[in-house]
Write a protein that binds this DNA or RNA. Structure first.
Length: 277
DNA sequence: GTGGATCCTAAGTT
DNA sequence: AAACTTAGGATCC
């Protein structure tokens, strides 16, 4: 199926900037798993070639997931008013913030704490193979809350979760038992949703902000990891040190509803060495 | 040149 | 506020 892509959307940059863990490049295409379906997607000359899913609704939902409906041209034009982002954008343009499955992103970001991207991807893959439904040859859906709630700790640890295994199971139990209502979370304002997330084991401010931004559609969230912290200190604070919370508050004040987009560009730029840290 | 042992590095939450 | 985990890379026989 052919889907038009608004300029300057950039599929690979969107998938590789650390917001999602179940997509990988395969030649010029990308393959991934979303909502129990396996997908293959390729971008060329202003359109996206999509293979996978079973209905047009599936494809529509995938396009939402990939962040195709974000008004990127407008967003980047506004971000360009900032001197640092104006310099960085030529190298990072086209990154969209994706709309991820809430449950999967919650568990993925619990795993992400004190962890690096390749290992997070591996852990999520292990979890899916061990506890998820098989949806195609060698492809497994992300496991449900119930499937993780009843998992044994040693089996979870074997998915290289390490000390995070109990957190993953406790969060799964809280969701499976209805102690935490994911649908209510979707309807809640940012501050309320944030408080609920912060109450979960293994969820601190950075993880909560990732879930708010990538799964709950709160574009003004600003997750501060070491890269973003160093980028802001280096590019805006003349190298002065500041706490993650101070940086988040500063960024939300400065970038408002576009803080999440500013975050992604700064993160990518820092990792690519475009900002002197 | 090859391969195993051994260190080193990178990532937030409690 | 020290402790947690481990893949992957570097270095050394």
């Amino acid at each position: 199926m052919i889907v038009p892509v608004p300029s300057p959307y950039h599929l690979r940059r969107t998938l590789e900037c650390g917001q999602v863990f179940r997509w990988s490049g395969e030649g010029t295409a990308a393959v991934g798993v979303y909502r129990g379906r396996a997908w293959r997607v390729q971008q060329q000359n202003g359109y996206l070639e999509v293979a996978g899913g079973e209905s047009e609704d599936d494809v529509r939902s995938l396009c939402e997931h990939l962040g195709l409906s974000a008004p990127l041209a407008l967003i980047e034009e506004r971000l360009g008013a900032d001197r640092v982002l104006r310099r960085v954008l030529p190298h990072t343009t086209g990154i969209a913030i994706m709309q991820q499955d809430l449950w999967e992103s919650l568990i993925s970001f619990v795993i992400s704490a004190f962890n690096n991207i390749p290992k997070i991807r591996l852990a999520v893959e292990h979890l899916s193979r061990r506890f998820g439904e098989r949806i195609a040859e060698g492809v497994f859906a992300f496991p449900s809350p119930e499937q993780l709630a009843t998992a044994r700790l040693p089996a979870l640890r074997a998915c290289i979760l390490g000390y995070r295994a109990p957190y993953v199971r406790q969060v799964a139990r809280a969701v499976a038992d209805g102690l935490v209502d994911l649908d209510a979370l979707r309807a809640a304002p940012l501050d309320d949703a944030r408080d609920v997330l912060l109450g979960l084991p293994g969820v601190g401010e950075k993880v909560a902000d990732c879930v708010l931004l990538f799964a709950l559609g709160h574009g003004g969230a600003f997750p501060v990891d070491v890269w973003v912290q160093r980028a802001v200190e280096g590019a805006y604070l003349k190298g002065r040190r500041a706490s993650p919370r101070a940086i988040r508050e500063w960024a939300q004040e400065r970038f408002g509803a576009l803080a999440g987009y500013a975050n992604q560009h700064l993160f990518t730029a820092a990792r690519q060495g475009l900002i002197s840290l």
